[in-house]
């Protein structure tokens, strides 16, 4: 948490202020997760508006900039119609646990990382699984047919998604030698991305992104939570603040997965050495963490918008087709990528 000390020293506090981890968690979630959620929500609406020959939000603020804020306020001021059933309380507990447990392990730049253990790659992976478990419990806890169908589908889809994405992580771990964020970043340069190291890692990249889309039911493959056929599946009776939590949970999963993809495959926060040494000469470590963070988030946003563009231009697949795609196509490709990387690193 050295970046926290840097900021504290820059602001003139002494280094031993109590509750530093809480401050750090609050900073990360307030200044990184929420703004990117708003930005992506706005860009997604504007991008799909351009795609569909319409104008998109233009009433709230200049060209609709305040639309995410408007959505959030609209949802937060409404409470759910019926009293919380036990199932929903359990779901909210699981959802918030999934959201904030892995906050500490998000790779946001060399200095801005709070926890960097040997297995830190698998912590966000775990939070994605808990999100899926929470959604399933939400669906099954509603005792309605759409809820039941939605819950079973989310479970099937997340199971199908874990296998290829886990193997995708193994490929990168094998290539980089360790599952520590800093080691993974160290194995890549500013322009030297693991994605282009050798074709098997490119295959691993495709498999990892595909598996993530299936695991978290993100836009192009959200058959399990589709609005049209069973009226929103799990989210049928979720309204008001719970819907805000549910939507934020889904965005959080998408955001975490994109950050992981960028760190694993697309040259995590590595800025050109010349720039880095110039900052070190000026003894401005804070600027390094800021530039690294922006470069990382920039790549994440581009990846997310690319996925949303695919989602807008294509129809939605059925859940059994998604799970067949995951087991039948992504699984074998993941194994091929694993064997390929193994031979490649051996040579």
């Amino acid at each position: 948490m050295n970046w926290v000390f840097l900021w504290l020293r820059a602001l003139g506090f002494s280094a031993t202020v109590p509750g530093i981890p809480l401050i750090a968690l609050a900073c990360i979630s307030l200044f990184v997760i929420l703004p990117s959620c708003a930005l992506i929500a706005y860009l997604d609406r504007k991008l799909s508006a351009d795609l569909q020959a319409r104008v998109g939000p233009c009433r709230t603020g200049y060209r609709g900039m305040l639309q995410p804020v408007a959505d959030c306020v609209k949802l937060l001021q409404k409470n759910s119609m019926h009293s919380q059933t036990l199932g929903e309380l359990l779901w909210m507990l699981l959802h918030t646990m999934a959201l904030y447990a892995s906050l500490a392990a998000i790779p946001l730049g060399s200095l801005a990382m709070m926890v960097d253990t040997q297995m830190s790659v698998f912590i966000p992976f775990w939070s994605a699984l808990v999100l899926a478990l929470g959604t399933m419990l939400l669906g099954l806890g509603q005792y309605t047919t759409p809820g039941w169908l939605g819950g079973i589908r989310t479970a099937a889809q997340s199971l199908a998604g874990t296998f290829p994405s886990l193997i995708g992580i193994l490929c990168v771990g094998m290539h980089a030698g360790s599952f520590r964020w800093s080691a993974l970043a160290a194995s890549q340069g500013f322009l030297h991305w693991t994605m282009f190291a050798h074709p098997f890692l490119l295959l691993a990249f495709v498999v990892f992104v595909g598996g993530g889309l299936v695991l978290l039911a993100i836009a192009p493959l959200d058959g399990g939570l589709a609005m049209s056929d069973i009226h929103g599946g799990v989210a049928v009776h979720v309204t008001g603040r719970q819907l805000a939590l549910f939507q934020f949970g889904r965005f959080y999963g998408f955001f975490i997965w994109s950050v992981m993809t960028v760190v694993l495959f697309m040259g995590a926060w590595r800025i050109p050495e010349s720039l880095r040494s110039w900052f070190l000469a000026l003894d401005a470590e804070v600027c390094i963490s800021v530039v690294e963070l922006t470069w990382l988030l920039l790549k994440t946003y581009v990846l997310m918008l690319f996925i949303l563009w695919i989602a807008r231009a294509n129809p939605r697949a059925r859940v059994d087709q998604i799970t067949d795609f995951s087991w039948g196509v992504l699984g074998p490709l993941a194994l091929v990528a694993l064997v390929g990387t193994a031979f490649w690193t051996m040579v």
């Binding site: 351009d50 795609l51 020959a53 319409r54 233009c58 563009w309 695919i310 807008r312 231009a313 294509n314």
Partner: peptide, 22 residues
């Protein structure tokens, strides 16, 4: 399909302007 919608993203040509009438 994605690249077929590319002209709409880049607003190429008259026929791909937005048609919303505020």
């Amino acid at each position: 399909s994605c690249f077929a919608t590319l002209p709409y993203l880049l607003r190429i040509g008259e026929s791909r302007k937005e048609v919303t009438d505020g």
